[in-house]
Design a protein around this nucleic acid. Structure first.
Lengths: 220, 220
DNA sequence: GTCTGAATAGCACGACCGTTCGTTTTATTC
DNA sequence: GAATAAAACGAACGGTCGTGCTATTCAGAC
């Protein structure tokens, strides 16, 4: 459970002290955030497709209909869960790297943060994986708003990598680097979560460092 | 629809002429194969989780109960679908590369065959993606027989890559190469299927060739 | 305090899920 | 052909799904 305080007049905070809602937030808004956080934890454990009203309501200690009233549909809820997870991703993985001014080091810092996230996304329980990545594969062939949202996130993610590469390794081919870096993360996820490979991190990092040393070159 | 013939006395064949069942196969065995092929096509389009009795029975023009009688449970059906898809994968991606005797070329041939499969797995409709890969991400955190089967496939797949690398690039670090190659395929899948990126193949191949030219080295 | 609207609960619905069972149809063997 | 086994069907089960309704409770403004 991420959310601690609920009372009005107090600032709503999470375990790591982030401020979500100001002191004058209405109760509905507070519950909404609570729902989204719990739903993200559920999605993290069992995939976005497992975010269903009944079990989610039970985890929250509220009724299905009370929960449902906060969203127009289940699909809308799922899309918002993805957005919420993306927020957390930005806070945990992306925001901290701005402190690093050395560009190549910044790229490396991003990659390690990302691997940390893949291993332990900051979404409650601590048990599950990244729901956004899971959604990418779950909905890559299923048209609809969930897929659209997933594609949007992935596009922004690729842009981020491309920018990091552009300033860190100006001579490298950016698109090929995006493919290689993105791939290392995806493969890392499978080796950690599906295979339970204890050495996954070492192998991933070795491949990453070799990639930085000899990147695919522009126009090659 | 893959299966053409059903009558006994004739050899059961698929569109591409593979022989599945001999001429003395019982009717139940024939139907079983027909079910598995159709289920694989369905899984390819919408994921293994979408392989449900009702819709599958309708696509087959048979009753839910008639279908169900061939398997002890839905989970057993899903596991068999994965096994069937893995068979196809072996036939389409792996078997042909034995013809190539030059080891480095064989590795490249495997990779291109794999990309072809990712773009158009040979599983019916032609519309969907690879159900095995989808299952890896769908079930990476969901314990049970489906996950176990998926992990088994992935383990064998990694072994295959490792062997191909070992003979093609003996000086390269095999585990890091597995991570890099597996990753390029996974990322390719997202860029093709989720993002609809027309240039995905060019970027993937550029990264792959750069990887072959400067692979991560042993003990580095 | 009272009032008012927001927030939640309770209940019911139709649809679909996997599964079971008894019956009927269809293959296969004699 | 008849006899027997295999296969498929149809109906029904208990369960869960998402989603409407209406009623109740509760929080916030006066």
């Amino acid at each position: 459970m991420i959310v601690k305080a609920l009372k009005k007049g107090h600032t709503l905070q999470t375990e790591d002290g982030r401020e979500i809602l100001g002191p004058d937030a209405t109760k509905g808004e507070r519950t909404r955030v609570r729902i989204l956080d719990e739903a993200a934890a559920l999605a993290s454990e069992s995939g976005i497709g497992a975010v269903t009203l009944g079990p989610l309501a039970e985890r929250l200690g509220m009724s299905k209909s009370g929960l449902f009233a906060h969203f127009k549909s289940k699909e809308a809820l799922q899309v918002e869960v993805l957005m919420r997870a993306a927020e957390r991703f930005t806070e945990v993985v992306i925001a901290p790297i701005r402190a690093e001014k050395d560009k190549p080091k910044r790229l490396g810092m991003f990659f390690e943060n990302w691997l940390d996230w893949i291993e332990h996304p900051g979404l409650g329980s601590g048990k599950g994986g990244c729901p956004i990545l899971a959604a990418h594969f779950e909905y890559d062939d299923v048209p609809g708003p969930v897929r659209d949202q997933a594609a949007k996130h992935n596009g922004e993610f690729y842009d981020l990598i491309r920018r990091l590469v552009a300033v860190a390794l100006p001579h490298a081919d950016q698109d090929a680097m995006v493919a290689a870096i993105d791939g290392l993360g995806l493969s890392h996820l499978l080796r950690v979560r599906l295979m339970g490979d204890k050495k996954a991190r070492a192998h991933t990092m070795q491949a990453f460092e070799a990639l930085l040393k000899n990147p695919p070159l522009k126009g090659a």
